[in-house]
Amino acid sequence: MSYIITTSDLTKQYREVTAVDSVDLHVEEGAVYGLIGRNGAGKTTILKMLAGLAFPTSGSITIGNGSRKPRIGVLIEEPGLYRSLTALENMEIKRIALGSPDSPERSRQLLEFVGLMNWADVRCGSFSLGMRQRLSIALALSGDPDILILDEPINGLDPQGIHDVRTVLSRLNQENGKTIVISSHLLDELSKVATVYGILDRGRLVKEAGEEEILNSMPAYVRFIVDDTLAAKTVLESMGIFSYQTKSQHMIHVLEQFARRDEMLEKMIMAGIHVHECQVVRESLETYFMGITKEDRV
């Protein structure tokens, strides 16, 4: 497997506090790696170390897997912008500083990409948090980085903004093959883009797993909405299924036997029950995260 970022025993200590404790991360090339954790779990500290903004107390970070050092675009904490300069001028400073062969037109394209073209010549000081966040994403994309390190990139964005950023990230990953390491408190949003997860708790990496593994470990159930729950229960029991919960007068959750969903549905219909809804529902990433970190604490 080709890892573009690996850390080994990565530790960061601030006086008495261990912010990151012996973390071994493995980020595959082309993955969207979601870092999940409570406040103070060490997400931002890890991202800062990956971005070269902070030094590890011990342990090592390896970035790149070939002879060429990958280029990294960074958005960590508050957007870093010169507020007295315009959006385009900020972009140009980054472009020139990187010695990028791109033309100035590329800066405009990136602003267009994040939906700020109409504000290209407006000073950043007058931007809303969402606009600054978008500009920071455009800055992170300047120089065509191979890896994007994004800390809470959807913080402060309105629902439309969150949707736009998600779309941008998905496109960057799927169309351009960018590797993205991203942290967010909005786990359901994160679950829409991430392909691998690293779950942190009090500075330690408690789990690192792919989307599929996480999905399979998430609690799930089949939800039936029917006109007669009593009759539905009789059908289920006749099939040898006893692990169910009656949630309301019309709703039953069947906690296992997902593979027999169609069979259950067929039997209920044959029994003359009106089935209004029948679907497999998975617990959210948030519920999964709460469960795994609680387990770890116990």
């Binding site: 971005a51 070269g52 903004l53 280029r71 990294i72 675009g73 960074v74 960590i76 904490e77 508050e78 957007p79 870093g80 912008l81 010169y82 507020r83 900020n90 400073i93 980054k94 500083a97 990187l98 920071s136 800055l139 992170a140 300047s142 120089g143």
Partner: peptide, 16 residues
């Protein structure tokens, strides 16, 4: 100083 104060240094730190 504004390079550090504004946080713009973060945009350059991985390259410079």
């Amino acid at each position: 100083m504004p390079m550090r104060r504004s946080g713009f240094i973060k945009n350059l730190s991985s390259e410079h």
